[in-house]
Amino acid sequence: MADVRNGTEAQAPLVKVRDLKMYFPIHAGLFRTHVGDIKAVDGISFDIMPGETLGLVGESGCGKSTVGRSILRLYDVTGGTVEINGFEIAHVDRDSLRSKRPMMQMIFQDPQASLNPRMTVASIIGEPLDEHMKLSADERLARIYELMDWVGLNREFAKRYPHEFSGGQRQRIGIARALALNPKFIVCDEPIAALDVSIQAQVVNLLEELQGRLNLTYLFISHDLSMVRHIADRVAVMYLGRIVEIASREKLFAEPLHPYTQALLSAVPEPDPESERNRKPIVLQGDVPSPANPPKGCNFSTRCPKVMDICKLQEPGVFEFGEGRQVACHLYSESMTTTAEPTAGERTN
C-alpha cells in the first residue's frame, strides 16, 4: 500500500517498501515443471519512519514473516523495491548487500532454533563483530560485555552455551546479537511467541527500552494483537499476502475499518469475565484460502461478513482516510475517494 503522507513530516522514511512481491514456485509432475506460485506476499507497500515501530499482524500463513524476511533479503524477492536508509536492498548484488547487512538485523521467533547450540554466548554475540568489523580481542570482548549489559545478561554467563539458559534469556542473547553492529532497523519476527506470559512482558519492555536508548526502528511481526497494541506506533494488518488496513495504533484499535480487522479485533478474548459475557465476537466462517489459489476479486471475499457482489469480481483499491490511514475494501469506494487508484496491480508510489 503506497503510504502517501501529508508532507508535514520533515523526516524521510527509513524503510520504504513498494509493491513487494514474493512468490514461491510450485513444481509438480515428472519433470518438476513450474505449475504455479504460492503468492505469499502479493504487492504490498508501506513506509517506516526512523524511530518508529510498525506492527505487522495477521493470522498464520498470511505472509507476515515472509514480508520480514524479504525486506532483509533473506529471500530473493519476486518483484517490487525495498529501500532501507536510502539504499536499494531488493535487487543489489551479494557483495554490496553484505556491506549493508550491519544496518538491518533480525530477531527470530524461536531462540532455541536460531542460536547455534555448539557456540558459547560470547561467540554467538561476537560473530557479527568478527564478520563485519576489525576489532582487537580486548575491544571485541568489551563490546560483547557491553551488549550483554544492555540486554540484562550477567557477564559471567559469556562462556556458557545456549541450552543452559531459559527461553527468555535465550531471546536476550538473540537480541544482543542483533544489536552487535549498531543496526538502524530491526525486524522482530514473533520475538515473544515462544515465551511464557510473564516472560513476554520482560522481553517487550527490553525491546522498548533499547529502542529509546539506541533510536532503533522496528518492524514488529506478531499475531498477538494485545502485544502489538502495546508496542507499535502504527499497525498494518495482513490477510493472504496483502495489507488490508494500515493505521496508527489508536485509530486502528479504536475504530477498525476493514471487516477483517474488525473480526480479528473482536475475536481477541479479554481477561475480564464481566465484559467477556457481553462481548459478541464476529465469528468468521471457514478457513483462510490457500495462497496458491487465492479467490478472484478481494482475497477476503470468501469469509467476509459484509461481502458484496463486486468483491467477488474486482480487487479493491486502496482508500485514504488521512494521517496515513489506508483501507483496501470496496465498502469505502464511494464514500471517501481521495487518492484511490483503480486497481491494486497498477499501484505506484
Partner: peptide
C-alpha cells in the same frame, strides 16, 4: 495479581509500560 497485570489488553486504556514479574519460575 501479577499475572493479570502483565497481560496487555486490546480494549480500554493502554499502559505506557508493561508490568513484569521479574525472574523465572
Amino acid at each position: 495479581q501479577a499475572l493479570l497485570k502483565t497481560v496487555p489488553a486490546v480494549r480500554g486504556p493502554r499502559a505506557e509500560r508493561l508490568q513484569v514479574i521479574e525472574g523465572q519460575p
